[in-house]
C-alpha cells in the first residue's frame, strides 16, 4: 500500500496512507503515513464503531493538509477496544456432535461429516443482514464434495469454476466456508474478539478439520502447485 501511494504521488496526486506494519512504512517511506496499532486485517480498528473509524480516517486525511514533507510518518495512539475478548461471548450457533473423519476417510465420509455439522450454521447465516460469502463463485451445495476431494487426497481433475484450477476453486471456497461459519457465529450486536471467533472455528469444527486435512494432503503431494495454493486453506497460526 505504501508503495502504491509513492507511485501515485510520483504521478502528481497527493496521497495519505494508513499502515499496519510500521517497519514497512519506515522502509518504503510513503509521502504521508499514519501507522495504526490495530490487528492485521483491521486498518480502521473497530468494526461497528463509526465514531472510532471516523477518528482514524480524519487522522489520516489531516496529513493531507501538512506541508512539512516529504515523508511524514505519524503514530495513531488510540487502541481498538475490540481487540480484547468479550467476557460473556458464546457462538450464536450450537453445532451437533459430529466425529471428525479418520486419517483414511473417503471423500464421501468427509462430505457427509461437513453436511452433518453445518445445518445450524446455514440457518444462522441466513439471518444475518449482510454476508461476505461468495468470492468462490460456487454454489454452496457443491462445497462439501470439492473440499472433501482434497481432504481424501483425490483432487478432481476438472474445475467446477471456469478459469480456475481445481485447487484454486477450492482455495476460494475454503475462504467462503470460513466466512460462512464465522458470520453465523457472531449474532448482531455481539462484539467478540477475532481470537474468540477463530478459536471456536479452528478448535471445534469439522469444517476446520476438513480444511486442515485438505491442506496437509496437498502439501504432501508431488504437485507443488497444489501445496502452494492449499497452504492458504489454513492460516499459519492455525496449522
Amino acid at each position: 500500500m505504501s508503495a502504491l501511494a509513492h507511485l501515485i504521488e510520483q504521478r502528481g496526486i497527493a496521497t495519505t496512507t494508513i499502515g499496519l506494519i510500521r517497519v514497512h512504512m519506515e522502509r518504503i517511506r510513503p509521502p504521508r503515513g499514519l501507522w495504526v496499532p490495530f490487528e492485521l486485517g483491521r486498518p480502521l480498528g473497530e468494526p461497528g464503531d463509526a465514531a472510532f473509524q471516523r477518528r482514524v480516517v480524519l487522522a489520516a486525511l489531516a496529513l493531507l493538509e501538512r506541508n512539512d514533507g516529504p515523508v511524514i510518518l505519524e503514530d495513531y495512539a488510540e487502541e481498538a477496544p475490540g481487540r480484547l475478548p468479550q467476557d460473556d461471548w458464546r457462538p450464536a450457533v450450537t453445532l451437533p456432535s459430529v466425529a471428525i473423519p479418520g486419517a483414511n476417510a473417503s471423500a464421501d465420509e468427509w462430505a457427509a461429516a461437513l453436511r452433518a455439522e453445518w445445518a445450524p450454521v446455514l440457518s444462522a447465516a441466513s439471518g444475518r443482514p449482510r454476508s461476505t460469502v461468495g468470492g468462490g463463485r460456487l454454489d454452496r451445495d457443491r462445497w462439501p464434495e470439492l473440499l472433501a476431494a482434497f481432504a481424501a487426497d483425490t483432487p478432481p481433475t476438472d474445475s467446477p469454476v471456469a478459469g480456475l484450477r481445481p485447487v484454486q476453486a477450492a482455495r476460494y471456497v475454503a475462504d467462503d466456508l470460513k466466512a460462512l461459519y464465522t458470520e453465523a457465529a457472531i449474532a448482531p450486536g455481539e462484539r467478540p474478539s477475532s481470537r474468540q471467533v477463530l478459536d471456536w472455528f479452528w478448535n471445534t469444527t469439522v469444517a476446520a478439520a476438513l480444511l486442515r486435512r485438505g491442506r496437509a494432503a496437498c502439501l504432501a503431494s508431488d504437485n507443488k502447485v497444489l501445496g502452494l495454493v492449499a497452504n492458504q486453506f489454513v492460516p499459519a497460526d492455525r496449522v
Binding site: 486485517g41 468494526p47 461476505t132 475462504d175 470460513k178 464465522t182 458470520e183 477475532s194 471467533v197 497460526d237
Partner: peptide, 9 residues
Amino acid sequence: SNYDRTGFQ
C-alpha cells in the same frame, strides 16, 4: 489467509 477477516465480515 494470515490476517483477520471477521472485522470485515
